[in-house]
């Protein structure tokens, strides 16, 4: 089981601090820390820390987009501190599945993501941060979103939440809507057989669900503060 530090202050001061080189366990996440509503009077922000991967998300809008769609909102994702080419479209696709876009016709929702530190699994952290920031902004969504990255190691065993230094044969990131049982994002890299793919997907979904209590606790903590 992953554990949460969701009540603690954001440790911005020790961003550069090296984490201890624990032997990665195949069945648990690195320590995670989630927080929403970081800035007192501006709704729509979230911070996600998974191991030493740290992502900050801020949502602007919905605001008017005079050239926008008549039926649904447009989503814009702005990354900073990260080469986003590989994951931006995945993130937009996932957010399109999450947000009830038809309620915000001719509007633009901007998600600003700042990757403060990258130690692998930026997409899973970004998916979690963006979805929680959207929820904090009060934008209507279908469900919360939980995401998980798994790696297929050269010896064909599966590892959850690999960091950057892990030698992997392939990696797979999945985002799901746990209540509706829907997958909203799959991003895979490397080579694996169809069989391995199916196994990795099932494994990733089962691990992503493990984050649901933590997301839930994080959101509740905001309502009770």
């Amino acid at each position: 089981m992953p554990y949460t530090l969701s009540k603690v202050r954001i440790p911005l001061s020790d961003l550069l601090q090296k984490t201890s080189e624990d032997a990665p366990s195949s069945s648990s996440f690195r320590p995670v820390c989630f927080k929403i509503n970081l800035f007192e009077n501006k709704k729509g922000s979230a911070y996600v820390e998974i191991g030493s991967t740290r992502v900050l998300a801020q949502v602007v809008g919905p605001c008017e987009d005079s050239s926008g769609d008549f039926y649904e909102a447009q989503i814009k994702v702005v990354f900073s501190g990260f080469d986003e080419v590989s994951i931006r479209s995945q993130l937009i696709g996932a957010m399109r599945g999450l947000i009830q876009l038809h309620l915000y016709a001719k509007s633009l929702i901007t998600i600003n993501l700042t990757v403060l530190a990258d130690d692998g699994g930026v997409l899973q952290a970004a998916l979690l941060a963006a979805s929680m920031a959207i929820i904090d902004a009060g934008i209507e969504v279908l469900d919360v979103c939980v995401a998980c990255q798994v790696a297929v190691l050269p010896d064909k065993s599966l590892l959850v939440d690999p960091n950057k230094s892990t030698q992997t044969q392939a990696a797979l990131t999945v985002a799901i809507l746990p209540n509706l049982n829907q997958i909203i994002c799959i991003d895979s890299s490397g080579t694996m057989s169809l069989e391995e793919y199916e196994k990795a997907l099932e494994f990733a979904v089962s691990k992503a669900v493990k984050l649901y209590p933590i997301v839930r606790k994080t959101l509740f903590a905001e309502m009770n503060s």
């Binding site: 009830q100 279908l142 809507l177 746990p178 509706l180 997301v215 509740f220 309502m223």
Partner: peptide, 25 residues
């Protein structure tokens, strides 16, 4: 009662209507 998005509130019924902040599925 505090809820998070995606939580099931009530089963659909004749005399229940989903208002703002909810949806029926």
């Amino acid at each position: 009662r505090v809820v998070i998005p995606g939580e099931s509130l009530f089963p659909s019924a004749e005399d229940l209507r989903p208002g703002k902040g909810t949806y029926e599925l």
